[in-house]
Design a protein around this nucleic acid. Structure first.
Length: 466
RNA sequence: GGCGCGGUGGCAGAGUGGUUAUGCAGCGGACUGCAACUCCGUAUACGCCGGUUCGAUUCCGACCCGCGCCUCCA
C-alpha cells in the first residue's frame, strides 16, 4: 500500500497519514450555511475532499465522512425575514439545491450529513461541560468561551492572543471578559428562533455545532478535518478550543485547508459580491467541466476562475473522451481490471492529492491508448477509466459526453441521422459540394461531423465556444 | 502593524540538488475529398541579489512584487 501524505495546517508541512484507528477513518468537512445557492468557491472543498474520500476508501476498509448542514444562523434568520418565509422552508429548499448542485459535480454523498438543528441538545451539553470546566462563562444571556483559559489557543492559525487583538477591527461587546472570547450561546428574542437552555431561551454560536456533531458522530478525536482557508481563523481555531477543552483530548490529527478561488486575481466571496453560482454555471457547462476545472490546480493553490479555464477544461475532457471513443470499432474495456497500488495516478493522489500530476498521467494513458494496437486497447481503456474514476472523472459514455446539451430548439438525433445519411450518399456519388453543404448546415446548428472508417459520427459543440 | 502563502516557458500548471513534467496555443510534417481526431518532430522557463555546493529553478539569507488572514466568508 502506498504511503499517504497530507499537508497539515497545524505543522505547515506534509506529513505521513497515521490514522487513530485504521479500521475506522474519520473525516469531517465544513458544509454550507443554507440561505442561498452555493458558489463555485463553496464547491471547491466539496470536490477536493470528495477526491480524498474516494482515495481513503481505496486505502482503508471503513471511512466515515461527515459534512454538516448549518441550518441555524443569523444570515438564515435574516434571509427568511426578507423572503417572508418560514426558516425551515428556506433551509430545506437550499439544502436540496446544494445536494443537487454537488451531485452535478459528481461529488459522492458523505456517509453522514448532520444538521445543526438536530443537535442543539448536544451543543447545550457541550457548553455546559465547558462552563463546568471553567473554560466558559455566562454573561447577560450569552455564554462565552474564555480563550485565556487555554494556553494553546492560536496554535492552528499561528497567532498569539496579543497579535490577534492588535489588528482587531471589531467592537468588543461589553459582556466579554476578554476581547478575544467568542460566543457559544446567545439569547433569542421572541421573534427569533430559540431553544431552552440553562441560560435562557437562545441559539448556538457558529462554532459549537461542528464540535458537537463531530463528538456525536465521529468521536472526541478525529483523523482529518477539512475546509476552506478562510475557516482557519476563527472557526477552526475555536473548534479546537471547544473540542480539546470539553473532552480533555486532542481534537483533530490532520487539518486540511483548500485555497481560494479568485476572480481577476481577487478572492471570490459572498461579501465582495463577485461570486459565480454553481447553479448558473451548470446552465452553460456540464458539471464534469466544473469538476475538472476545480481539479486542474492543486487544492491548496489559488485558482483563477474564468471563462478561459472552463473552455480549457472542456477541451481537455473532449480529448480524453476521444481516446475512450477510439477512431474505429468500439473498444470494450478489459473486464475485472483494477488499478494497481503503484499506479502513477494513485501515487500522485497519495502525495497530498496532487490532482494536476494525476491528470497529466491521464494524458499519458490516453496517448498510449490512441497509439495502441487492437490487442492492447481493452486494457488501456480499462486503465484510463479506473484512473479517472479515482478522480471522479470520465464517468459518462463518450457518446453521451459528446452528444449532451442542446436546447429545446436543437435538432433531434433522428433529424441529424437523416442528414448524415443523405451526406453519406452524396459522398458516395462524389457530390462533395452537397456533402459540404450538409456539414455546414449542421455546423450552424451546433453539430460537428467526423468521418471515421466506421462511418460518420456527430457531437454537439456549445454555441459559446469560439 | 502582526502572522501566513506565493512568484516556473505565450497561457494554465506540476516537480526536482545535476538528463523531457503535462495540457492548450505556436511552428514543421504525416493522415484526410474537405474537415475533425490522431500521430511524428520542434522552439520558449524557473522574480532580483548574495551564500552553501563540483553543480541551484530546487537549500540558506536579504530584497522586490503579488495575495490572504487578524473574529460574515469555502
Amino acid at each position: 500500500m502506498p504511503t499517504l501524505t497530507l499537508h497539515n495546517t497545524l505543522s505547515g508541512r506534509k506529513e505521513t497519514f497515521n490514522p487513530v484507528d485504521p479500521e475506522r477513518i474519520t473525516l469531517y468537512v465544513c458544509g454550507p450555511t443554507v440561505y442561498n445557492y452555493v458558489h463555485i468557491g463553496n464547491a471547491r472543498p466539496v470536490v477536493a475532499f470528495d477526491v480524498l474520500f474516494r482515495l481513503l476508501k481505496r486505502l482503508y476498509p471503513n471511512v466515515v465522512y461527515a459534512r454538516n448542514i448549518t441550518d441555524i444562523d443569523d444570515k438564515i434568520i435574516q434571509a427568511a425575514e426578507e423572503n417572508d418565509e418560514p426558516i425551515t422552508a428556506l433551509t430545506q429548499r437550499f439544502t436540496v439545491a446544494f445536494e443537487q448542485d454537488m451531485a452535478a459535480l459528481n461529488a459522492q454523498p458523505p456517509t453522514i450529513t448532520p444538521h445543526a438543528t438536530d443537535h442543539v441538545d448536544d451543543m447545550v451539553a457541550m457548553i455546559r461541560t465547558l462552563v463546568e470546566k471553567q473554560h466558559a462563562y455566562a454573561a447577560e444571556g450569552h455564554v462565552l468561551f474564555d480563550v485565556q483559559s487555554m494556553p494553546e489557543y492560536g496554535r492552528l492559525s499561528k497567532r498569539s492572543l496579543d497579535d490577534m487583538l492588535a489588528g482587531a477591527r471589531v467592537e468588543v461587546a461589553p459582556y466579554k471578559k476578554y476581547a478575544g472570547d467568542f460566543v457559544l450561546w446567545k439569547p433569542s428574542t421572541d421573534e427569533q428562533p430559540g431553544w431552552d437552555s440553562p441560560w435562557g431561551r437562545g441559539r448556538p454560536g457558529w462554532h459549537i455545532e461542528c464540535s458537537a456533531m463531530i463528538a456525536r458522530h465521529l468521536g472526541p478525536l478525529i483523523d482529518i478535518h477539512g475546509g476552506g482557508q478562510d475557516l482557519i481563523f476563527p472557526h477552526h481555531e475555536n473548534e479546537i478550543a471547544q473540542g480539546c477543552c470539553a473532552h480533555g483530548t486532542d481534537y483533530v490529527r490532520y487539518w486540511m485547508h483548500n485555497g481560494y478561488i479568485n476572480i481577476d486575481g481577487e478572492k471570490m466571496s459572498k461579501s465582495l459580491g463577485n461570486f459565480r453560482l454553481v447553479r448558473e454555471l451548470l446552465k452553460h457547462y456540464p458539471g464534469e467541466v466544473l469538476r475538472f476545472a476545480l481539479l486542474s490546480a492543486h487544492y491548496r493553490s489559488p485558482l483563477n476562475f474564468s471563462e478561459e479555464l472552463l473552455q480549457h477544461a472542456r477541451a481537455t475532457l473532449d480529448s480524453l473522451y476521444y481516446a475512450l471513443l477510439g477512431r474505429g470499432a468500439q473498444i470494450e474495456p478489459e473486464p475485472g481490471y483494477t488499478l494497481p497500488d503503484d499506479h502513477p495516478v494513485n501515487l500522485a493522489l497519495c502525495d497530498d492529492l496532487n490532482t494536476p500530476e494525476a491528470i497529466s498521467e491521464l494524458h499519458r494513458i490516453a496517448a498510449q491508448l490512441n497509439k495502441a494496437g487492437d490487442a492492447d486497447k481493452p486494457r488501456l481503456k480499462a486503465e484510463l477509466l479506473a484512473a479517472a474514476g479515482l478522480l471522479g472523472l470520465l464517468t459518462q459514455t463518450p457518446s453521451a459526453w459528446f452528444q449532451q446539451g442542446g436546447g429545446s430548439d436543437a435538432l433531434d438525433s433522428a433529424a441529424i441521422d437523416a442528414l448524415i445519411e443523405e451526406r453519406s450518399a452524396a459522398k458516395k456519388g462524389r457530390d462533395f459540394s452537397r456533402a459540404d453543404a450538409i456539414r455546414e448546415q449542421l455546423e450552424r446548428a451546433g453539430i460537428v461531423l467526423e468521418d471515421t472508417r466506421e462511418g460518420t459520427r456527430w457531437s454537439r459543440r456549445p454555441a459559446n465556444t469560439d
